[in-house]
Design a binder for these strands. Structure first.
Length: 92
DNA sequence: CAAACTATTCAGC
DNA sequence: GCTGAATAGTTTG
């Protein structure tokens, strides 16, 4: 556990449901805008892959990047969360 | 401490 | 649109 990783986890956890942020965005929030690679490494080796919404962190604006459970799982998760957020917005 | 690796991003053709 | 190079932090020896 490193200070930078801590910031990354906190930033990722602060991403709202249905929203996606790029590694660069997370890295910038963590304090090192050029450490987007490090963010990926951290998330990959992160101790709590299940409680960290690493699926909300994507590559650039179009690609989804990778995921511990598989990129396809990440895509499904993203779509599911998008639906959830829509329900919340409609006060269902 | 140093070397290697990485779920990325930018620049050039 | 695709290929190659660069950056910064983590992990392992």
């Amino acid at each position: 556990m490193t200070p930078f990783a801590r910031n990354v986890y906190k930033t990722v956890l602060s991403i709202p449901i249905g929203e996606v942020r790029s590694y660069k965005w997370v890295a910038k929030k963590a304090g090192s805008p050029r450490a987007y690679r490090a963010v990926g490494t951290i998330l990959k080796k992160n101790p709590w892959p299940l409680i960290i919404p690493c699926h909300r962190v994507v590559k650039s604006d179009n690609d989804r990047g990778g995921y511990i459970f598989g990129a396809k799982t990440k895509k499904l998760l993203l779509e599911s969360e998008r639906e959830i957020s829509r329900c919340i917005a409609n006060k269902e």
